[in-house]
């Protein structure tokens, strides 16, 4: 088969997987950051301890995703990041504030601590909102006008709610006692926000983009695609029903299903992500550029593919190992 045909598809897939890994992994730690102001002073230390060993590596998936966009689809990288210049700058501001606050909040003088806590929460929220706005702008093909920007802001709020839900699910899984009980409450509230946002984005996306509408609302594609929204709906229902039950059982000292909210949320993210990927493929800049038009030369892609084929499984292997080392409930994090 012609390398110019399949290499861009492979790289679009690798990029999608990197961004998906990023959304799930950094999603939960950004979510914990968004929820931070809701915790008490002592709870905040536990909340941050639950993500401390992981966040560095989680953010590396963003570098890989954007890196793949840069090296495999340089034309699209220029257009997309040029169009998203301001939200990208704001996202970077958020990620920088948050990343440094992680360390500064425990190392700086005590009076400065609340300031760094605020920087951590605000940075997390800003990064989540900006990423949602970037997604929204991207989906409309960077259309001008108030309606398109309104859609982008909606997507921003939706992604922040989804991250908060992921973060709450993570905390339910990784903590116990009073904090775990509160995290269940946070998840219930974030669930409504996420549900509303996913619904709104699902309705608005085909309205905002005739291009995407044409891909969904034709037979038989529509029937084949139906499992995506129906699956999401089922998972939302599962969460809505199981969270109150989980709260009752947790109060009675039984948290055996504490992993369920996080797993169900990851399921929703997966289904939404593949819905979006279907909407976009094979374009990389919607309505303007396909992945084949934007791709680098096969010679460069092949060199990277060889490396990726060897190294990516290794990365997955040691990532799994790192998660196993810190398996179980998060204790106060210490250097000893």
């Amino acid at each position: 088969m012609n390398a110019e045909l399949w290499l861009p598809v492979v790289f679009a897939g690798l990029m999608a997987i990197s961004l998906l890994a990023y959304v799930i992994l950094d999603g939960y730690d950004l979510g914990v950051g968004i929820l931070l102001p809701l915790g008490s002073e002592a709870e905040r230390d536990t909340m941050i301890a639950s993500i401390g060993p992981f966040w560095d590596a989680n953010e590396t998936w963003l570098v890989l995703g954007v890196g793949l966009l840069l090296v495999a689809f340089p034309l699209a990288h220029g257009i997309i990041l040029g169009e998203l210049y301001l939200p990208v700058a704001l996202m970077l501001l958020g990620l920088i504030l948050r990343g440094v606050a992680f360390d500064f909040r425990v190392k700086a003088r005590d009076p400065h601590r609340p300031w760094w806590n605020a920087a951590f929460a605000a940075g997390s929220l800003l990064a989540a909102l900006s990423q949602g706005v970037m997604l929204g702008r991207y989906l409309t093909g960077f259309a001008p006008g108030a309606a398109a920007w309104g859609f982008a802001l909606l997507a921003g709020a939706g992604l922040a709610a989804a991250y908060a839900l992921l973060g709450a699910g993570w905390l339910i899984m990784k903590t116990r006692g009073a904090l775990q009980a509160r995290a269940i409450g946070w998840a219930r509230r974030a669930l409504y926000g996420t549900g509303l946002a996913v619904l709104a984005v699902s309705i608005a996306t085909p309205l905002a983009s005739a291009h995407i509408a044409a891909k969904w609302f034709v037979l038989p594609d529509f029937l084949l695609l139906l499992p995506l929204p129906l699956g999401s709906l089922a998972l939302f229902a599962l969460l809505a029903l199981s969270l109150p039950r989980l709260a009752r059982r947790q109060a009675a000292g039984n948290d055996s299903l504490c992993w369920l909210p996080f797993a169900a949320t990851v399921g929703i993210v997966l289904l939404s992500f593949w819905g979006l990927a279907y909407s976009v493929f094979p374009d990389i800049v919607i309505g303007r550029l396909t992945i084949w038009q934007a791709a680098s030369s096969p010679e460069a892609l092949r060199v990277i593919l060889w490396g990726a084929a060897v190294v990516l499984p290794t990365i997955v292997g040691y990532t799994v190992y790192a998660y196993r080392v810190f398996w179980g409930k998060a204790e106060g994090l210490s250097y000893s």
Binding site: G52, P53, F54, D56, A57, E59, T60, I315, Y318, T319, A322, V325, F326, L333, S334, Y335
Partner: peptide
Amino acid sequence: ATFLGIMLFG
């Protein structure tokens, strides 16, 4: 980034 977590807190 991955082994940093183990190095710092492990």
